[in-house]
Amino acid sequence: MSAGSAQPYREPAILLTPGLLFLLLAFFFPALQLLAQSFLTFGTEPARFTLEHYAKAAVDDFYAGVGVRTFRLAMIITALCLLIGFPLAVIITRVGPALRTVLIVLIILPLMTSVVIRTFGWLVILGPGGVLSWTLQQLGVIDRGISLMHTEAGIVIAMVQVLLPFLVLTTLGSLGQIPPSLEEAARVMGAGFFRGIFHVTLPLAVPGLASGSLLVFALSISSFITPTLVGGVRLQVMAGSIYQQMTGSFDWGFGAALSMILLLSTLLLIVPYMVITSRIGGRK
């Protein structure tokens, strides 16, 4: 194409420069500032290098508890999303076009609705005198009103609904590349329905499931709106503590250090996970 013209690099360079400069200044520079802030004293002038923020995070039992809760919840949420999301994605690839559109809207419409609004819905459902409590009472399952507000179960239920679309959409991308003839072949050769799913479709969907669950895990660790509103102050998660440090107690150095710990621990979990799933995905 344009490689033949006299100055092959000039045109793409002109097209790319404004966007690259903008991202450099407005995205990469702030990310580096955050990293720097976590190693600098805050409030004193001039700022000096310090490790005190990381030390504070390491010795404080409260933040260790918050960290453990954050990762435990993220693992449960990711596992549930996988458990529900994989069958849902498989069904979407196999139904007729009309039902397929309905199901995709079912996934996209909540995804495109503000997290604040979806969380509000869950507050009305899970709260005292809410929809869940009322329904269970009508069914005679419970005789006194219940509330899942300020419980980890409540956080998990709401977060799975918020994050499930990400897993389903990434898995659909990977399922779409599997020729349907593969499972048909397995079935013709005598494999049963479940064998066809678990020995043919599932292994081929591993790349999509892996990237989808990583996305869900990372998003769940860095969410604070749903966990804070459903869980309240007693069940704090890391992102919620960070929000409080940055906007409430104004301890920015400590907030920045907590953010870096959150980011690094996510990476530490992601790398081995990717190695394992790429091995499974590579086994044919």
Partner: peptide, 29 residues
Amino acid sequence: RFRFRGQATIAALFLSPLILPSLIFAIGL
């Protein structure tokens, strides 16, 4: 529409805001 050296890297740079959690970016900003 063009082929040039470093294309994959530049494409990744442009998509990187999708990967960094927006919480982290918001604090930096």
